[in-house]
Amino acid sequence: MQLSSISPAQTATELTATTPLLDYRTPSIQQLIKTRGWRDLSAFDQIGALHDFVRNEIQFGYNTSDQSKASKVLDDGYGQCNTKSVLMMALLRALGLSCRMHGFTIKKALQRGVVPELVYPIVPNNIVHSWVEVWFDGHWVKLEGFILDDGVLSALQKQFPDRNSLCAFGAGTNRLQEPEVTWTGADTYIQQTGINQDFGVFDSPDLFFSKHPQELTGLRGFMFRIALRHWMNFRVKRIRAGHNYALPQDALS
């Protein structure tokens, strides 16, 4: 079911359920929650703890597929917007916090610098993107600021000390030096300015990805899985370590 508006009663039922991707009953997720003591926190602190965990302990990187189960993303230890969103939703629901997915596409320019220039021309123009919306304090709060870990974000701030607007290297923001990535009870963002199409909200990532899969099929999908994503992950690690990849001048205009 695609959802455009949801009552509080609905949020307490449909939006805390497990799905094939939101497999929060798996032992690894349950053990994580127990070890961290997240069940003992207030709702505000639970969301903050999960947001910090997914932002920094699950580093920015590219998994095999958007349709990776939450337990697989946790095991990988890295993820991008869609896979981190899946894990974030699973953790929220495991704590009884109602959440949904909001789907979009982003301009491929947002991935420039992470995607090598050699293959950038063949990347799809529109890339499927998502963020999480959690029901908190009587309204929906948008969570997107967990995508880039502090290591990548601080490296970009150092590389572009005089810029606030950046749509490259996985960031899409007009507040690069003071990004909205810390949980305060309000929306968090880090790729918002790259959005170019809004698909609306969905009660599960399973439904969203079934309706709006990435344009990575056939040979292009095969090449992404076996080669390109590893190349991109290598570049992300180098960015995190302080290496500056140059961009064509038009990419920063």
Rank of each mutant, 00 (worst) to 15 (best):
D150L: 03
D162C: 07
V115Y: 12
I127L: 14
Q157H: 14
N126P: 05
A171W: 00
N126H: 11
V181Y: 09
C167Y: 04
F169V: 08
R163D: 08
V181S: 06
A155L: 07
Q111S: 02
F160R: 01
F136G: 08
N174F: 02
F169Q: 14
G172T: 11
L176H: 13
W135S: 01
Q111W: 09
K142N: 04
I122N: 02
E180T: 04
V141Y: 00
D149A: 12
E180Y: 05
E144H: 12
W131E: 08
Q111K: 06
L176E: 07
L156D: 10
V132K: 03
P161F: 14
G113K: 10
I147R: 10
K142P: 08
D149C: 10
F160Y: 12
G151V: 11
L153Q: 12
R175H: 15
I127T: 04
L153A: 08
H139L: 03
V134H: 00
H129Q: 14
P161W: 15
P179G: 06
N174M: 13
L118A: 15
R175D: 13
V114P: 07
K158D: 13
I127Y: 05
L143H: 10
W135G: 01
V119K: 15
L153P: 00
G113T: 12
E133I: 00
E180D: 13
V134L: 03
G170T: 07
V152W: 15
V119T: 14
L148M: 08
F136I: 06
C167E: 13
V123Y: 11
